[in-house]
């Protein structure tokens, strides 16, 4: 399988708690956090938690899914712009696939993202639902 426990575990602060890095010099917020600011190049950051609401910037409905996701198919994924302007990619669930539109208000919910087979580790993280 592709995803190992260690690789999953390393991203827990982002996946569970939406932790991002805010550049202390210019205020740019990076999700996921980075070592070097994309905007000003400085290297000092403070950990901030992203807001849990935003809107859909673009989306699609995946109908041919990777193996780990075929049971969910068809499912929506979207680019979300959170209230503070930070963007992230997420599944959009609990939604009528025909009623997704640009600007749809959404909020973050904690969900199971995938699993390593029936006897492997469960991988959790964020998805969005209509707000």
């Amino acid at each position: 399988m592709g995803l190992t426990t260690a690789r999953y575990w390393r991203e827990v602060p982002q996946r569970y708690r939406m932790e991002a890095g805010e550049c202390t010099a210019c205020g740019e917020i990076h999700f996921p956090p980075r070592r070097i600011c994309m905007k000003c190049g400085k290297q000092k950051f403070e950990t901030v938690v992203l807001p849990d609401t935003g809107k859909v910037i673009t989306w699609t409905v995946i109908r041919v899914a990777p193996d780990e996701f075929t049971d969910l198919s068809p499912y929506a994924v979207c680019l979300v712009e959170l209230e503070n302007g930070v963007r992230l990619m997420s599944q959009l669930v609990d939604v009528d696939l025909d009623e997704i539109e640009m600007g749809l208000p959404v909020k973050i919910e904690f969900r199971r993202i995938r699993e390593d087979g029936a006897d492997g580790v469960l991988f959790y993280g964020y998805k969005v639902v209509p707000a």
Binding site: Q14, I62, A65, P66, E68, Y75, V77, G125, K127
Partner: peptide, 13 residues
Amino acid sequence: QEYEAYHGVTFPG
């Protein structure tokens, strides 16, 4: 891998 593929996003997607 961690912020696109993790969520089930494919290339066509």
